[in-house]
Nucleic acid binder design. Structure first.
Lengths: 121, 121
DNA sequence: CTGAAATACCTTGACAGGCGAGGTATCTTG
DNA sequence: CAAGATACCTCGCCTGTCAAGGTATTTCAG
């Protein structure tokens, strides 16, 4: 089944920026790409996605403009800015460090002293 | 500098359970172990820690009891339960899957279709 | 002896991100 | 014509984090 929300929390921005690194895109399509890439195990919920777009635009990491397609529903396209790219690389560095730490912490919580009572039930 | 909270968010429970897999321990010590293991780059804040203890105990993943040390401040020890161990293994499986997906999504957001406008500024 | 720091616990209230539910409008297809 | 896909958006709740504040005990420098 799908990944729990909290494991994803905080990564939404990086995911969206990564998608936009490939070129301008719009909400619905980015969402679809996520589902496809993960074989349906992960989906950016719409409310989350659009909230993130607004957050990212406010931060100056993306710009938006309306598409001019004559056919189909109107689309709001997003483009990553220079600041956005820099932010993305920073997020990736953070992610690498954090996941390394997490791996270490979760593999071995390490109370290390090992003297106290260790009775189990 | 320290890792941002949101990257760690949701992993607190797994971290605590991992620590308790090594044997019973108490809040202050677990916290110290985290700081030591990560060279100070990550710290479980006290409020977060004690909130998590209550959450985990309520879920039946840990049990608690007061230590009987004659010296020093009183300590509340925590022990992981069978349910807690199972939960820990489940969390680890989830983490493995989620981090794999995340890695994929963040490395390549993949709008894949690559037909639309791709102008950048 | 005194006062600061360390050990050890705990609660309250605010905040931020995720998302269920609900809504709008257009186009396609049976 | 109705249903479903495409495409956008908002409101309000929930949950986990944490700054700030608090208690009590022990240790140790001055």
């Amino acid at each position: 089944m799908s990944i729990t929300a909290d494991l994803i929390r905080g990564h939404t921005d990086a995911i969206i920026l990564a998608a936009l690194l490939q070129g301008d895109s719009y909400g619905y399509r980015i969402n679809r790409a996520m589902v496809d890439l993960t074989d349906g195990r992960y989906e950016l919920k719409e409310a989350t996605l659009y909230t993130a777009f607004r957050r990212l635009e406010e931060a100056g990491y993306i710009r938006s403009y309306w598409g001019d397609e004559a056919t189909g529903a109107r689309r709001r396209y997003y483009a990553i800015t220079l600041n956005g790219k820099n932010a993305y690389y920073a997020m990736m560095r953070e992610w690498r460090e954090a996941s390394g730490l997490l791996e270490k912490l979760m593999r071995f919580g390490g109370t290390d002293g090992g003297d106290d009572s260790t009775e189990q039930i």
